Amino acid sequence: MRSIKIVKAVAYAFNTQLAGMVETSNRSVRLPSTVGWHDINIKPHPSLVSSSKSENNNRVVTTTLKLITSDDLYIRRRHLVFRVTLTDDRQYLVGARQRPYPQIEITENAPENVTDNQLNEVVITYKSHEIPPFIQV
């Protein structure tokens, strides 16, 4: 049976809080209970896409998370990880404690017309060798 994969929530934490993370399998991790997640107020529904390709005989997985938020995110100078929650309550971890870190691009809109999008557009790109793991609760 296939499940519907729709993102319902996104939160971020500082990558230094992942000390003590345990990989329980190839596709899942257990996080320390001390991780302080900061919820992001998002417009439904963000997109999460992971795609793989081969570069110099190495598998590279690029994960892209796109969201629209009313929050002013002052997070550019810190290395962050993201918890992405789906509608069936599964959670993915985008990012890791060590390099490479997720790249964050924020577009702040101040449009000419009142009816145009005034929310911030955020694109998070993370490159690694594996698809983002599930977070075991």
Rank of each mutant, 00 (worst) to 15 (best):
S3F: 15
S3Y: 13
I4K: 15
I4T: 13
K5G: 10
K5T: 08
I6M: 10
V7S: 11
K8E: 14
A9T: 08
A9F: 11
A9L: 11
V10L: 08
A13G: 10
A13M: 03
A13S: 13
F14P: 05
T16M: 10
T16N: 13
Q17L: 05
Q17D: 10
L18P: 01
A19K: 09
A19F: 11
A19V: 05
A19S: 10
M21L: 07
E23W: 12
E23K: 12
E23M: 05
T24Q: 07
S25T: 01
S25R: 07
N26A: 15
S28Q: 13
S28G: 08
V29K: 04
L31F: 05
S33F: 05
T34D: 05
V35W: 07
V35M: 06
V35E: 05
I40R: 02
I42R: 08
P44R: 15
H45L: 10
S47C: 06
L48P: 02
L48N: 07
V49C: 07
V49S: 08
V49G: 08
V49A: 07
S50V: 08
S51H: 12
S51Q: 14
K53V: 08
N56H: 11
N57V: 10
V60K: 15
V61H: 11
T63I: 05
T63C: 00
L65N: 10
T69L: 00
S70F: 07
S70C: 05
D72E: 14
L73I: 00
L73C: 00
Y74E: 12
Y74L: 06
Y74I: 06
Y74D: 14
I75R: 09
I75L: 04
R76G: 07
R76Q: 11
R77D: 14
R77V: 03
R78K: 12
H79E: 11
H79D: 10
L80P: 01
V81C: 03
F82C: 06
F82A: 02
F82V: 01
R83P: 02
V84H: 11
V84F: 12
L86V: 05
T87D: 10
D89V: 07
Y92M: 09
V94D: 04
G95C: 06
A96V: 03
A96N: 15
R99A: 15
P100W: 07
Y101H: 08
Q103P: 02
I106L: 01
N109A: 01
A110P: 00
P111D: 05
P111H: 09
P111F: 07
N113V: 04
V114K: 14
D116A: 06
D116L: 02
D116G: 03
D116Q: 12
N117L: 00
Q118V: 06
V122S: 00
V123P: 00
Y126D: 00
K127A: 04
S128N: 10
S128K: 01
H129D: 10
H129Y: 09
P133D: 11
P133T: 12
I135Y: 09
Q136F: 14
